[in-house]
């Protein structure tokens, strides 16, 4: 094409670039998982042993550390997020671990331990909770009076098999008996990934 030739809009680089971007964008949108599926918006952390997995919304949740038995998740406090303090206890904390006891034995131990802690009261439980995959477990919600500040705790136990129990220790300033936390617990995956 010479300079004397009339410009052909359909062949101009900006138009071609825009069409390519539009085409790629349409492919991305059409291939994305459906927003109706809760898992489409969640990240998944799977234990190195492959026998359980935690599905979490990131952000605000983030993994702080992990090992063979479990991982520590956190939502930063407002002070941490604003950079005024570095480290410390987050607004929400979740520690996952594996204990060599049955669910019932571990819950008995947890209830006794909670009753022995000064300033700690049992708010709910022990009560049953079931994951979306049909795994039944037990949970206990406690509240610590301000020392130095009030914290809720929610301990959830699910059977892992071979006399092992998955233990989820939630610890937060807001009330942990909320729909969001309950849904996060019910989305825990137990057993090998399908």
């Amino acid at each position: 094409m010479t300079l004397a030739d009339p410009a052909n809009a359909s062949q101009s680089p900006p138009v071609n670039r825009a069409l390519r971007v539009l085409f790629i964008a349409s492919l991305v949108v059409s291939c994305a998982p459906s927003g109706d599926d809760p898992l489409s918006r969640l990240d998944t952390w799977e234990a190195p042993t492959g026998d359980y997995r935690i599905r979490y919304l990131a952000p605000p949740w983030a993994i702080i550390e992990e090992d063979l038995d479990g991982a520590r998740f956190q939502i930063e406090s407002t002070l941490m997020a604003s950079g005024r303090i570095d480290g410390g206890v987050g607004k929400y904390e979740l520690q996952t671990s594996r204990v060599p006891r049955s669910v019932e034995a571990e819950m008995d131990r947890e209830v006794r331990a909670s009753r022995g802690v000064a300033g700690r009261s049992i708010e709910e439980g022990p009560r049953a909770i079931t994951t979306h995959e049909g795994i039944e477990g037990l949970e206990l919600i406690t509240f610590d009076v301000p020392d130095p500040f009030e914290r809720y705790r929610r301990v959830v136990l699910f059977p892992l098999g071979a006399s092992q129990t998955l233990r989820l220790d939630f610890d937060a300033t807001p009330d942990l008996d909320s729909d969001e936390v309950t849904e996060m617990i019910r989305l825990v995956g137990i057993g090998p990934a399908s």
């Binding site: 994305a32 998982p33 459906s34 927003g35 489409s40």
Partner: peptide, 10 residues
Amino acid sequence: LRLEMDGAAF
């Protein structure tokens, strides 16, 4: 409308 938000399609 076909929307994309946070990695999911709506």
